[in-house]
């Protein structure tokens, strides 16, 4: 829950500027990007996601490093991914 997980922005939801679809380890879900108001975010960018909200923009290398940290955590990350897969915020 406290872990930030990296996701790649796929697209923005039409008519809802603060919602974007992201890909997190193959799980595609909608998250809120309203806290990144200052950053220019485009499809293909990576963001660090906490409980459904992107908190910062990161680069691809950092996304890979964070992903490895999470993979090493094992079960807790799998639980988080499963929770994300069940999430339907749109």
């Amino acid at each position: 829950m406290c872990l930030g997980i990296p996701g790649e922005v796929i697209e923005f939801l039409p008519g809802q500027a603060d919602l974007a679809k992201v890909n997190v380890s193959g799980v595609k879900r909608v998250i809120n990007v309203g806290l990144l108001a200052g950053d220019q975010i485009e499809p293909g960018d990576w963001v660090l996601i906490h409980v459904g909200f992107a908190l910062s923009k990161i680069d691809e290398t950092e996304a890979a490093a964070t992903m490895r940290f999470l993979a090493a955590i094992g079960q807790a990350y799998e639980d988080e991914l499963a929770a994300l897969a069940d999430s339907r915020i749109e």
Partner: peptide, 11 residues
């Protein structure tokens, strides 16, 4: 109920 995000609770 377990939720992933507070936005899920809102839903």
């Amino acid at each position: 109920r377990m939720v992933y995000s507070p936005l899920d609770a809102l839903k």
